[in-house]
């Protein structure tokens, strides 16, 4: 906490501290796994997004099985003297159930600003198809 002290503010203002404690953070109310996930889909793809700051794409292991996508990785611990430590560290592992068949060969993953995006194209068979009704 050394940084929070200086000659003008000899003690951290208590009010400010309480305010920070009261602020809603992530996962308030609902137990969540790590990393937090957003699942969305459009007509062609299923998108899985995860907030994994500080981890590069090649440090993440993605496994696709028949019905699941597994995200595995580790947030490395920094070595040194901590004055404050709030960022989570350690191994994470999440399993996402896929309820639609996907085209396994065309799955793509990208990482931007700490957000992992996995794009899973829906297989041809599961896409909506318009059926023509012919009148005789």
């Amino acid at each position: 906490m050394v940084l929070d002290f200086n000659t003008f503010h000899p003690l951290p203002q208590l009010e400010k501290m309480f305010e920070e404690f009261m602020r809603p953070g992530y996962g308030s109310g609902k137990a969540m796994g790590y990393p937090p996930l957003n699942l969305s889909n459009d007509e062609e793809n299923v998108y899985v997004r995860a907030e994994i700051p500080g981890v590069s794409l090649d440090e993440i292991e993605l496994t696709l099985t028949d019905k699941t996508l597994v995200i595995k990785g580790e947030r490395k611990k920094l070595a040194g003297k901590f004055l404050r430590q709030e960022r989570p560290t350690g191994v994470f592992h999440r399993v996402i159930g896929l309820n639609v068949p996907v085209d396994r060969d065309k799955v793509a993953a990208s990482m931007k600003d700490g957000i992992l995006t996995v794009t899973l194209p829906k297989s041809e068979a599961s896409r909506p198809k318009r059926i023509r009704i012919g009148a005789e």
Partner: peptide
């Protein structure tokens, strides 16, 4: 939100 923060002394 207040971002999760680490402060290291070196």
């Amino acid at each position: 939100y207040r971002p999760a923060t680490d402060i290291m002394e070196e």
